[in-house]
């Protein structure tokens, strides 16, 4: 093979690795504004059951096999969650989230992101998981100071008292 062919091959190999090397890291992708912070509202929570549990009568219990007798009868289906989030007095999110599962008996899940300017913010999170149609079962406010690029999460754990700002 002529030497100029080897030279040409080298050029083509160089072009190939230049293509691979460059596009394996560049150009950089700007996924989010680096000067903004993000507030994530993210949690799972099971609302109350659609129908309250009912105590079985002695007659009903007697009709059941001895090993199947239980004190309470509970329907599986749950209520939806009603969730609100206010940032600096502005309602940025309000949604009624249905329970998961084929029988609508699982926890409802919330996963929302909000880009905000860094600095001080007043946050108010509310959640209704009961049968009352007015008001909220949980409401919590917090003043937070967010830095640029910070990921701030609002979670929820009923056992820990409600919303968790972190």
């Amino acid at each position: 093979m002529a030497s100029w062919k080897y030279l040409l091959q080298s050029v083509l190999y160089a072009a190939f690795i230049a293509l691979i090397g460059y596009f394996s890291v560049a150009p950089a992708y700007r996924h989010a504004h680096p000067e903004l912070a993000v507030i994530k509202l993210a949690f799972s929570h099971a609302a109350e059951r659609l129908e309250p549990c009912r105590k079985l009568t002695p007659e009903e219990l007697a009709q059941l096999a001895p090993n199947m007798r239980r004190p309470m009868e509970c329907e599986r289906e749950r209520l939806p969650l009603l969730v609100e989030l206010e940032i600096d007095g502005e309602l940025v999110f309000r949604a009624e989230e249905p329970p998961t599962g084929l029988w609508q008996d699982g926890a409802a899940t919330i996963y929302q992101k909000f880009q905000v300017q860094p600095g001080s913010h007043e946050l108010v999170a509310r959640l209704r998981d009961g049968r009352d149609t007015v008001g909220f079962d949980y409401e919590q406010a917090a003043s937070v100071e967010l830095a640029a690029g910070q990921n701030f999460v609002i979670g929820f754990r009923a056992a820990a008292g409600g919303f968790k700002f972190q």
């Binding site: 596009f23 150009p27 950089a28 700007r30 996924h31 989010a32 690029g149 990921n151």
Partner: peptide, 16 residues
């Protein structure tokens, strides 16, 4: 660092 938001990222365009 999950406490920050990845904003500008070196990207492998072949896969991503």
């Amino acid at each position: 660092n999950l406490d920050t938001v990845p904003a500008v990222i070196g990207f492998d365009w072949f896969y991503l």
